[in-house]
Design a protein around this nucleic acid. Structure first.
Length: 287
DNA sequence: CGTCATGTTAAGGA
DNA sequence: TTCCTTAACATGAC
């Protein structure tokens, strides 16, 4: 579920649902997701606190809590497979944490436990500009934080300290829209390419958010209704992502722009999908 | 059995 | 110093 558009949609939804709820009790079933403090410590520090707002920073969900003593933020990161939703608790092997509140329960499930729940907010200080919170990242900003690096533009877009919120899917989609090859070095991009990237970031994220706001959503991850949240390689996904994505997970399928077969390469251990025709190298430097 | 998966972080090496 | 790769983390789908 975890890139900026998905977390943003979830954040808006949860804000409507749990704003004003007071945490009466909490349970940790998979302690690994509580980091770095202990489960006991974290639970002790949130009991009787009220959730006054749910926000998002990069891929982090921020639950703002208040009590008579003051305020604190509870951070939830969904990792790859984290799901955060309200409802009645039903035993499920992936349940990682459960908050019982005065008006309902909040459930965090995470199959791979790569997600995280924490009261330590220092992770937020390391984030770069957020494309939604801080507005469309201008070409000048992108050039400033990425333009002197010899790393690949794909890695740079996914570096949360330069720009917060993009992951593997949207980095691929943005590069395709901008016509920039994922293996290009940051310091090889020309001014018009930073402009195209700026525009592509805005358009790609706006489109995803619009899609997420207007279609049926399945917060728990049922395969038959996964029209927005990405639920990995299973059942309904193939046809769904075939429609939603331009290049991601579309190796050998025809590019929607030109019909050329989409290719896959591996960068920093992650799959990059691109169209060799639309995202041509034009003799530029590769990372 | 092997490969891959929306993320982050650490280690070792060029 | 920078940035690469690999691995680790746990589990599931194919």
């Amino acid at each position: 579920m975890p890139e900026l558009p998905e977390v943003e949609i979830l954040s808006r939804h949860l804000d409507q649902q749990i704003r004003g709820w007071t945490i009466l009790s909490a349970q940790v079933l998979r302690p690994r997701v509580i980091r770095p403090e202990s489960s006991e410590h974290l639970i002790a520090r949130i009991l009787q606190w009220q959730i006054i707002k749910v926000a998002r920073r990069g891929k982090y969900l921020v639950l703002e809590l208040t009590q008579s003593q003051g305020k604190q933020d509870l951070i939830v990161h969904l990792g790859m497979t984290g799901r955060l939703f309200t409802g009645d608790f039903v035993p499920h092997p992936h349940t990682a944490m459960l908050w019982k509140c005065d008006q309902g329960s909040l459930i965090f499930r995470d199959a791979r436990t790569l997600g995280r729940v924490s009261l330590d907010t220092t992770c937020l200080d390391r984030l770069g500009q957020d494309p939604l919170r801080d507005g469309q990242p201008e070409a000048t900003y992108l050039r400033k934080v990425m333009g002197r690096s010899r790393a690949s533009i794909k890695s740079l877009l996914m570096d949360q300290s330069r720009l917060a919120g993009l992951g593997n899917i949207y980095a691929c989609e943005i590069l395709h829209r901008a016509g920039v090859h994922p293996a290009r070095r940051g310091d090889s991009l020309l001014n018009h390419e930073w402009e195209r990237l700026s525009k592509a970031i805005d358009e790609t994220l706006s489109q995803a958010l619009q899609h997420g706001s207007s279609c049926e959503l399945d917060w728990e991850g049922g395969l038959d209704r996964s029209k927005f949240f990405y639920f990995g390689s299973a059942g309904a996904r193939r046809s769904v992502s075939e429609e939603r994505f331009g290049v991601y997970d579309r190796e050998k399928a025809p590019c929607r722009q030109c019909g050329q077969a989409v290719e896959r390469i591996v960068q920093a251990g992650r799959s990059s999908y691109f169209c060799p025709n639309c995202q041509s190298l034009r003799g530029s430097i590769l990372a």
